[in-house]
Design a binder for these strands. Structure first.
Lengths: 151, 151
DNA sequence: CCGATATCAGTGTTACTGACATTG
DNA sequence: CCAATGTCAGTACCACTGATATCG
């Protein structure tokens, strides 16, 4: 029995989804950071590169909406991507407020490299769950998230 | 169809549990903060009060272990709880390194008040899920979290 | 001497807010 | 005039690290 487990959390917390989710998110963020090593790998790079690859060139505002990243942070992340040669920033001739961001071949290779690294981290994160349970969890979370991003 | 939905996230992200979890955690934290209003209500207060109520008086180190709160943050949170009269801090005569934290009657009332407020937030958070699905999600998350807190 | 405790100071990430100039 | 865009400065929350003094 674990009746005397000094690390056992209060029952109220274990029954509170928001606590479970925020706690697990902390572990998830740590696992992902560790997977990237301390070398630069921002978590946002993956999201932005994935959006660029799937939907093609886009403005910074569109990238922010798709990836739920604040505009001010998109600026920094795109700076880093262009610094490393993973994306190109160019003014949009049709709308001079916008920048058009385009992924480069090096960026596509980086995307696949990050994806492989991330896969390992997902496996560690969901280690105690079976394949079917992982799919269940993913689908439930996707529905919750979709509900909140569509207001 | 939502084929032209400008807010649709990349498919890669929707299939990445760590992204789903961290994104949902952000929404959860926002909902909980809103529920507490801007009036003081740290998220930690609930965890600490719940631990004190369930396990009785405890040292700050024990509270930190049970609630997964860093020692340095336990100090601040306990300061706030004692300032508001929700807990009492007293030196442990049996071990003079320790402080013994005890919940007060006002703290127990506050705990119930926060619990009711939190219930509403949980309902908003999991709005798109049925009762059975909410239980499923909660149990899956609890197993993942348990795995990582027990190393 | 080692380990645990409480405290404090400081850092890094990230969400958010507000301001601003430019453009549609 | 209003809305959107890109940029920047600043704030808040919180996880984490390290230092320190005290005590078992």
């Amino acid at each position: 029995m674990t009746a005397t487990d000094v690390t056992r959390p209060p029952a109220r917390l274990c029954a509170t989804p928001s606590w479970l989710i925020t706690q697990t998110a902390t572990h998830a963020a740590r696992l992902v950071s560790e997977a990237f090593g301390t070398v630069g790998g921002r978590r946002y790079h993956y999201a932005l590169l994935a959006a660029l690859e799937e939907f093609g060139p886009a403005s910074q505002a569109e990238l922010g909406r798709r990836c739920s990243i604040d505009r001010s942070y998109v600026v920094e992340a795109v700076n880093e991507l262009t610094d490393k040669g993973f994306a190109v920033r160019a003014p949009d001739p049709a709308d001079r407020r916008r920048n058009i961001i385009t992924i480069t071949p090096a960026g596509e290779r980086e995307l696949e490299r990050i994806a492989a690294t991330l896969d390992v981290a997902q496996d560690k994160l969901l280690a105690p769950l079976s394949s079917g349970e992982r799919k269940q969890l993913t689908q439930l979370m996707a529905r919750v998230l979709d509900h909140h991003t569509h207001r």
